[in-house]
């Protein structure tokens, strides 16, 4: 059974990335209430920023990591202030925000393309020998990737449940008006939400960058996979994003057993359509069907 084990391992690795993207998307969807594609651009931005600091400038990797996360946080703040906030103030619908996030995605990835060109970049890490775990080869970087994803996820939960800020985020998610009358600074909470979401997507981008390689176009499919994962897990439920992420990662990798590998992406989106139709609230969701269809 080594093949299946290897596919399961690959599914876990992909799943860890999807889980990070899904939690980034879910946070914004729950608190700011729209489907935001910009985490896909943040993912690319973080990977290229880390590449720039670490490889082009030759800075220490951890310094590069911190600087990249600062950059994506600032980018998220600028995007929110200059695009999403004015649309919210004009009472533009969720769909306008969704389209604007597409625009943001194209602008950010376009700038990266302009600055770095279309060639694939690599961090040039030495090729590692994988550990043999139940017949599946897994490298140290891949283990690091899965562990980082789980640890971040754990801290996100802790943050949302225990800190004052996390609680005010949940309050804004429940009802913006009531949160505001309770003295919660809604705009500030939204800004912080975007920053946390950007850090989650940014870490995902950097992890994939060091594990594989980076190119300007790598953000689109991954953000839709993240959205799929969060729908499958259950929108309105950030922890479920973790499960959704791993589920999508494993299913699409096991799918290779039955379909040519070129259909890998299609499998995830078929799952998305099936869930939208039959269980739009996701596996763990509590949303009523009425919110999804009329």
């Amino acid at each position: 059974m080594p093949l299946i084990n290897q596919l399961l391992a690959n599914g876990l690795i992909a799943g860890a990335i999807y889980a990070l993207m899904a939690s980034s998307f879910s946070l914004i969807f729950n608190i700011v209430k729209f489907m935001d594609f910009s985490p896909g651009a943040i993912y690319v931005l973080a990977a290229f920023a880390a590449f720039f600091f670490n490889i082009v400038l030759g800075l220490n990797f951890f310094v590069a990591l911190i600087l990249s996360l600062i950059i994506v946080s600032l980018a998220a703040i600028v995007i929110n202030k200059s695009v999403y906030k004015p649309i919210r103030e004009r009472k533009g619908s969720n769909f306008i925000l969704l389209l604007a996030s597409f625009g943001v995605f194209l602008i950010v990835t376009g700038i990266i393309l302009l600055l770095f060109g279309a060639q694939v970049k690599t961090f040039g890490l030495p090729i590692e020998k994988g550990y043999d775990i139940f017949g599946a080869l897994i490298t140290k970087t891949q283990i690091l990737l899965i562990v980082t994803s789980l640890v971040l996820f754990f801290f996100l939960q802790l943050f949302m449940k225990t800190t004052k800020l996390g609680k005010s985020m949940r309050a804004v998610a429940d009802n913006r008006e009531i949160a505001s009358t309770l003295g919660i600074n809604v705009e500030k909470t939204i800004t912080i939400t975007f920053v946390i979401a950007a850090i989650l997507a940014g870490v995902a981008g950097i992890l994939v960058g060091i594990e594989q390689n980076i190119e300007h176009s790598m953000g689109f499919i991954v953000v839709i996979k993240g959205i799929t994962a969060s729908i499958v897990g259950g929108v309105g439920n950030v922890p479920a994003a973790l499960l959704g992420g791993f589920l999508i990662g494993i299913v699409e990798n096991l799918g290779i057993l039955f379909l040519p590998s070129g259909y890998k992406d299609a499998i995830a989106f078929l799952i998305l359509i099936i869930f939208l139709l039959f269980r739009p609230q996701g596996i763990f969701g509590v949303k009523t069907r009425e919110e999804v269809s009329g």
Partner: peptide, 15 residues
Amino acid sequence: LRGDYLALATLAFAI
């Protein structure tokens, strides 16, 4: 499907 959810389904269809 309502609004955004239809958008997602059509996006998945196109992909």
